[in-house]
Amino acid sequence: MAIIVANSENFENEVLKSEKPVVVEFWAPWCGYCKRISPLLKSIAEKNEGIFDIYTVNVDDNEKLQVYYTVLTIPCLFVFKNGKPSDPLIAPESKTVIDEWLKDNGVI
């Protein structure tokens, strides 16, 4: 399980109630920058299999989640621990930035 699709239906069970930390990326198919980071997220997910999962939320199909978490720029990443989101990481500029952010949030 590398990257898993989250939506309004499974968000509570899969993300909020997860025992492990969960990384959530808000994205959309038309978003160029989302495309740019997606291979990177895939490799991060594969490298950290068993430690944490990465879920993606398509904002076009899940407006309620987008509004609830005040996502105004995508890609936007959160770490969820015990149902609570971290500060967002918005359009990270490099692999290093994502790695540092994961470290700061104690998931790696």
């Binding site: 978003c31 920058y33 904002v59 005040t70 105004l72 720029t73 995508i74 936007c76 918005i90 359009a91």
Partner: peptide
Amino acid sequence: LIGRGVAYCATCDGML
């Protein structure tokens, strides 16, 4: 305000 109204790429964030 980056990500909360201020953006630098319309094709990236315009749809929002």
